[in-house]
C-alpha cells in the first residue's frame, strides 16, 4: 500500500515510455531527469518531454531462476538491458518468446503489461515489457 502515490506519479512514464530531452545537448533520457548529467546548470528548465517509440535492441540479457516472491509465477523469466532507438538504455522483461530464441542484438518493441500488484486487494501496477520483433 505504501507505494500508491509513487506508482501513480510515475504511471505516465511507465505506460507511455515518456522520457525527456536536454534542451542544451539534445541527449534523450529515460527515465526522465530533472537535470542533464552533462550540462548541469545549463539544462535547468530546458528539459523537454519526449514520448519514446519503444523500439530498440537487446544489449544483454539473463534468464532469471532465483526470483523475488512477486515474480514466482513468471519463473524463469528473461530480463534484459534494452537500448532504445532514441538512445537511452533501460531494464525490462522480454515476454512471449522461447528463452532460447533470445539473443544479444535482436530487435524488440515495447508492450503494455501487468508488472505487479499490491496483493489481492491492492492496486495493479502496469508498465512496459518487450517482445521480439
Amino acid at each position: 500500500m505504501g507505494e500508491l502515490s509513487r506508482i501513480w506519479r510515475e504511471s505516465e512514464h511507465r505506460y507511455r515510455l515518456m522520457g525527456n530531452r536536454c534542451g542544451n545537448c539534445n541527449q534523450v533520457f529515460f527515465p526522465i531527469r530533472d537535470v542533464c548529467p552533462h550540462c548541469h546548470r545549463e539544462s535547468i528548465g530546458k528539459m523537454k518531454p519526449v514520448e519514446l517509440s519503444g523500439r530498440g535492441e537487446i544489449v544483454s540479457f539473463t534468464i532469471v531462476h532465483d526470483t523475488p516472491p512477486s515474480f514466482v509465477r513468471q519463473r524463469p523469466y528473461a530480463l534484459a538491458l534494452i537500448k532504445l532507438d532514441e538512445g537511452p538504455v533501460l531494464t525490462g522483461q522480454i515476454v512471449d518468446a522461447e528463452n532460447d530464441s533470445i539473443e544479444m542484438g535482436k530487435r524488440v518493441r515495447s508492450v503494455f503489461r501487468k508488472i505487479g500488484e499490491d496483493g489481492k486487494s491492492g492496486i495493479i501496477q502496469y508498465g512496459y515489457k518487450f517482445v521480439l520483433e
Binding site: V59, V64, Y77, L79, T91, I115, K129
Partner: peptide, 12 residues
C-alpha cells in the same frame, strides 16, 4: 520493480 535482482544484473 521490473524484475531485476542483483544476480540478474551481474548475469547480464
Amino acid at each position: 520493480f521490473f524484475g531485476a535482482t542483483p544476480a540478474a544484473l551481474a548475469a547480464i
